[in-house]
Amino acid sequence: MTPALAFDLLLIAALLWSAARALTIADVFHAVVLFIVFGLLMALAWARLGAPDIALAEAAIGAGLTGALLLDAVGHLRARQREPEQ
C-alpha cells in the first residue's frame, strides 16, 4: 500500500465518520463543530482529487463562513432557551 493510498483511505474514513457523527450527535454545538471538521476534510478531498479551485471555495465558504453562521445560530438558540428561566 502506497502512502498516498493509505492517506486517501484515512481521508475517506474520516469524512464518513464526521458526516455520520454530525448527523447523529444530540448536542447542536458539537454537530456544528463536526460540520466544520467535515468541511475542512472535504476541502482536503477536493485538493486530492485535483480540484484546487473547489477546495479553496469549500474551505473558505463551506467550512469557514457557514460554520460561523451556524455557530451564531446556536448562540441565538441558547440565548432564547435561557430567557424563559430568568
Partner: peptide
C-alpha cells in the same frame, strides 16, 4: 487556482473575524 469568489470569501472571513 484562485479568483473572485475565493478572494471574496477570504475578505468576508476577515470581516467575520474582526466582528468576532
Amino acid at each position: 487556482p484562485g479568483g473572485a469568489f475565493q478572494a471574496g470569501a477570504v475578505l468576508a472571513a476577515a470581516g467575520v473575524l474582526l466582528r468576532l
